[in-house]
C-alpha cells in the first residue's frame, strides 16, 4: 500500500505491554495531566471536554445506560470498552443527541447540553460515527467527505445558486478532503459512488468525513471493524496524533491490543454502568473488568 502511514506487514504491532514507568503514558515522554487522575469510576479530570451526570436510559425493563458520573478529558484518546450489550453505543447515541435520555444532564465543551439536537451538537464540534456505517451510497466519495466541511456558504439557499459566492471555499475544502482521502487510502476512489466501496472502505470514508468536520470531540463507534488491521492502526495513529494537537477522541473498540496501544484512558461499561476507568495498563488488571469483559485468559493475552 502506498500510504506512508501504513506500517509494513512485519512492523511491530503497537505495544501492548505497560510502560516500565506508569507516569510515562504509552509513546509519550512527558507527564500527562490525565495520569494524575485516580483510576476510579467517575473520577474528576483536570480539563474535561464532556461531563455527564446521572444519565439513564431504559428500554422496557432493561436499564441500558445508567451512568452516575463521567468526565472525558480534553485532548486525550479515551477508549470505551465493555461486553456486547453493555450500552456503549446507547451512551454514544444519548450524548450525541440521537437518542433521548430518560434523565440526566451533561455538558460539552463548557456548555450545558439542555435540548440535545444531533445537528446542533455536531455544529458545536461533537462529531460521531456509526457502528453500522452510514456512507451516502449515491454520492461520490469526494462529495461524502465534502459534506463534512463545516460552515459552508454554499449550503445556504440564498447563496447556493451563485457559484462565485462559494467557489473558493469549495476549492479549499476539496483540497483538504483530497488530503484526507489520500491518508485513508481512498484517493483512487475519489469520483466513484460511495455505494461501490467495500465495507471497510466505507468505515474509513466515514471517519474521513467526520475528520473533515474539524471536530472538537470525535466519537468513533468501532472505527476499525472490517478495516484491514494495518490500515486501521495507521488510521488510529493518525487520530491520536490529532489528539495531541488538541482534538479529543472517544472510541469504542473490542480489540484489546488496539485499546491498550492507542488509548490514554479506558472507560469500562458493563450493563449500562461504569465499572472501571483508568489508564489501559491498569484497567486490564482490574478484577471487575476481567470478570465482566476480558475473561481470565484474555487478560493474560492482552499482556
Amino acid at each position: 500500500m502506498p500510504d506512508e502511514l501504513t506500517p509494513s506487514p512485519d512492523s511491530p504491532r503497537p505495544a501492548a505491554t505497560p510502560p516500565p514507568n506508569p507516569a510515562e503514558g504509552p509513546g509519550k515522554g512527558e507527564i500527562e495531566p490525565i495520569l494524575t487522575v485516580p483510576p476510579v469510576p467517575g473520577a474528576p479530570k483536570p480539563n474535561p471536554i464532556l461531563t455527564v451526570d446521572n444519565l439513564a436510559r431504559s428500554f422496557g425493563g432493561l436499564r441500558a445506560v445508567d451512568v452516575d458520573h463521567l468526565e472525558v478529558e480534553r485532548g486525550v484518546v479515551t477508549a470505551l470498552i465493555g461486553p456486547n450489550g453493555a450500552g456503549k453505543t446507547t451512551l454514544f447515541n444519548l450524548l450525541s443527541g440521537f437518542d433521548r435520555a430518560d434523565s440526566g444532564r451533561w455538558s460539552f465543551d463548557g456548555r450545558a447540553v439542555t435540548a440535545p439536537a444531533p445537528d446542533q451538537l455536531a455544529r458545536q464540534g461533537m462529531i460521531r460515527t456509526f457502528q453500522l456505517t452510514k456512507s451516502l451510497a449515491k454520492l461520490t466519495v469526494i462529495d461524502n467527505v465534502l459534506l463534512g466541511a463545516p460552515g459552508q456558504a454554499g449550503e445556504r439557499l440564498w447563496t447556493a445558486p451563485f457559484r462565485w459566492r462559494w467557489r473558493d471555499q469549495e476549492r479549499e475544502n476539496t483540497g483538504r478532503a483530497e488530503e484526507l482521502l489520500e491518508r485513508f487510502n481512498l484517493a483512487h476512489m475519489r469520483d466513484e459512488l460511495a455505494g461501490t466501496l467495500s465495507g471497510g472502505q466505507r468505515k474509513l470514508l466515514e471517519v474521513a468525513r467526520a475528520l473533515m468536520a474539524n471536530p472538537v470531540l470525535i466519537m468513533l463507534d468501532e472505527p476499525m471493524a472490517g478495516v484491514n488491521p494495518a490500515l486501521g492502526q495507521s488510521l488510529m495513529r493518525h487520530i491520536t496524533l490529532l489528539a495531541h494537537e488538541g482534538m479529543s477522541v472517544v472510541f469504542i473498540e473490542h480489540a484489546m491490543d488496539v485499546v491498550t496501544g492507542l488509548s490514554d484512558w479506558v472507560v469500562v461499561l458493563s450493563q449500562g454502568r461504569i465499572i472501571a476507568e483508568g489508564p489501559p495498563w491498569k484497567v486490564i488488571h482490574d478484577d471487575d473488568v476481567i470478570d465482566a469483559y476480558l475473561g481470565r485468559r484474555r487478560a493474560g493475552d492482552a499482556l
Binding site: R123, I127, F130, K134, L147, P150, R209, A213
Partner: peptide
Amino acid sequence: EDEDAARSLGK
C-alpha cells in the same frame, strides 16, 4: 441517502 448521517455532520 441517510438523514442521520446528515444530522451527525451538523446539517
